[in-house]
């Protein structure tokens, strides 16, 4: 008999242990640990590489009471890695859906400052849940994800206070199996820094990086014209 509830975090940012997705997802999973969950974290880029890692992924998904997918918005939807993993999980669940109730929650962050640009990606995850027999636990969207970057939330408590509050509320709701409160969604969507400042910092950041690569005069190149 299994006593502890199990939560699985799938991180869908490509090839990076250090990402906004990992920071957000890890914080939530640690909160679930505090609630007594047994937890696991998998990085999708590793999990879909080989047959045995795919099998391990499917095994963990079958076992989980709660699955959290944290990923960046790529071209207005889920990154390739996340779509691929959902296809693999859906195929597995065609054969057999576990009898116990399993919840699915997603956390999406994007580069543009508006959290609402993640709505389509959340709708896709919701649809995936409906088609594969997960109970939909809701979707959180963070705009201007670069303001978190690869920093653990515990290290940027003041800047990330709304994000932290949102994830704490989310952990409570997952633990007590109630629908995600609107407050959690609203807090996560609140800009971390004002839009104008975010854009200014991002633009300065691009220019600085270009200077480092000595490409600052070539940033507007059109290599495919010829």
């Amino acid at each position: 008999m299994r006593t502890k509830k199990q939560a699985l975090l799938l991180v869908g940012s490509p090839g990076k242990e250090n990402s906004t997705s990992a920071s957000l997802g890890t914080f939530l999973i640690e909160k679930l640990q505090d609630h007594g969950f047994k937890t696991d974290v998998l990085f999708i880029y590793k999990s879909i590489r080989q047959d045995d890692s795919k099998r391990a992924l499917l095994g963990k998904v079958r076992q989980a009471d709660v699955v959290v997918i944290a990923f960046p918005l790529y071209v207005d939807s889920l990154p390739y890695l996340v779509v691929k993993s959902l296809e693999i999980i859906a195929k597995d669940r065609k054969e057999k859906i576990p009898k116990t109730e399993q919840s699915l929650l997603c956390i999406v962050n994007n580069g543009f400052p508006e959290a609402s640009q993640n709505d389509t990606a959340i709708a896709i995850c919701h649809r995936f849940a409906a088609e594969t027999g997960f109970k939909w636990a809701g979707g959180l969207a963070l705009g201007g994800g670069g303001a978190i970057g690869d920093k653990p939330l515990s290290g940027i408590k003041s800047r990330a206070r709304n994000v932290i509050k949102s994830l704490e509320i989310t952990a409570n709701s997952l633990n007590s199996r109630v629908p995600l409160p609107q407050e959690a969604i609203t807090l996560m969507a609140r800009p971390i820094v004002p839009k104008w400042l975010y854009l200014l910092i991002a633009t300065i950041g691009w220019k600085k990086t270009a200077k480092k690569f000595n490409t600052h005069k070539n940033l507007y190149d059109r290599p495919f014209l010829s």
Binding site: V83, L86, A90, I124
Partner: peptide, 9 residues
């Protein structure tokens, strides 16, 4: 799931 296939993505 309402979006594009992994191949296209």
């Amino acid at each position: 799931f309402g979006g594009y296939s992994s191949e296209l993505k």
